[in-house]
């Protein structure tokens, strides 16, 4: 297992280098000049030059790259243009909130989605289609709903009409009750999307596994149907489900950007949008990197879980 982990990490190196380089290059490919882009039209020539100096853009490209990478390794992400605060500090403040929301979403939605998907598949396998059809249509509906629209609907219902959940205010980790109330709506929006996606793949995967020969073998040896599902089907179906859940995490991150924006949750999504609106590219490139690393990390985690379940997986 340790050996496997090392190999997997080694394999990731080219991708990570690629990601870092791509972000670096992209930010310098902005038409015209990055400084000008950030400053807008309201800086004079001298001020522009000073800013170029401060951002370290006055030196050759390769030197900028070296500085940038060494900075990254030391977690020195520069300072924001508007406030002059260190970017790393802003990210460290915002990241726990986003991660907490994401982790909660994954936990809640996996439990619900796997249950729903399994029941649908089990019934469909026996030829009872109505629940399956219902789930199929519901998941499609929810999956295709624009998340910002769903968020607005929920806000309209629960905040503006019923007044149950606040849609603004600070997030305080020391008061879980208040915090949960604050993040309840974003959680609902994010979970809905995740459940829709994972339930659908669970259904397909379990249904497929139930058609496998080894399921028939187990049945031919008198294992009751429900135990067949728990003993053989779920474990085998777990693999495609985990793969998709890993990919769905990308959607989840997309969703956090939008829900944080709507519900004013001070996570890295809000940081990103603010950064873009204030044309603060130091901040934007760092936040994008954080998102990418989160995504890569989760995909690596799913690989490990996969390996843990399936003895066949080799590198």
């Amino acid at each position: 297992m340790a050996d496997y982990a090392w190999r997997k990490l080694l394999q990731l190196i080219p991708t990570v280098i690629g990601v870092v380089t791509l972000v670096f290059l992209a930010m310098r490919m902005i038409p015209g000049n990055a400084t000008g882009f950030m400053a807008g039209d309201n800086l004079s020539g001298d001020a522009l030059a000073a800013m170029t100096e401060r951002l370290g853009l006055g030196i050759p490209m390769w030197q900028q790259y070296v500085n940038y990478v060494t900075g990254l390794l030391r977690f020195d992400l520069g300072t924001t243009i508007v406030t002059g605060l260190p970017v790393s500090q802003l990210i460290l403040e915002a990241l726990p909130i986003t991660v907490m929301v994401a982790v909660l979403t994954v936990l809640i939605s996996c439990v619900i989605a796997v249950t729903i998907g399994t029941i649908a598949a089990y019934l469909a396998n026996k030829g009872k289609k109505w629940f399956d059809q219902l789930i199929t249509w519901l998941t499609m509906l929810v999956d295709l709903m624009p998340s910002f629209w769903m968020a607005l609907l929920l806000m309209l219902t629960f905040t503006l009409t019923l007044g149950w959940f606040p849609a603004s205010g600070t997030i305080n980790f020391s008061d879980p009750g208040q915090m949960l109330q604050r993040i309840a709506l974003p959680l609902m929006v994010l979970c809905a999307g995740q459940i829709a996606m994972i339930a659908r793949i669970t259904r397909t995967a379990v249904l497929e596994v139930l058609g496998e020969d080894y399921i028939r073998t187990a049945r031919a040896f008198g294992l009751p149907q429900l135990r067949v599902v728990f003993r053989h089907a779920l474990k085998n179906a777990a693999m495609p489900v985990i793969t998709v859940a890993g990919l769905a995490f990308g959607n989840l991150l997309n969703g956090t950007i939008i829900t944080e924006f709507i519900f004013s949750i001070p996570g890295i999504g809000t940081l990103l949008i603010n950064g873009i609106n204030s044309r603060d590219y130091t901040l934007v490139q760092s936040v994008i990197l954080v998102y990418a690393f989160l995504f890569i990390l989760v995909n690596m985690l799913t690989d490990f879980i996969y390996k843990y379940i399936d003895p066949r997986v080799r590198l």
Partner: peptide
């Protein structure tokens, strides 16, 4: 390696 919306936002 980038979530799709994030990539679009960045671009």
């Amino acid at each position: 390696s980038f979530p799709s919306l994030l990539l679009a936002i960045g671009l």
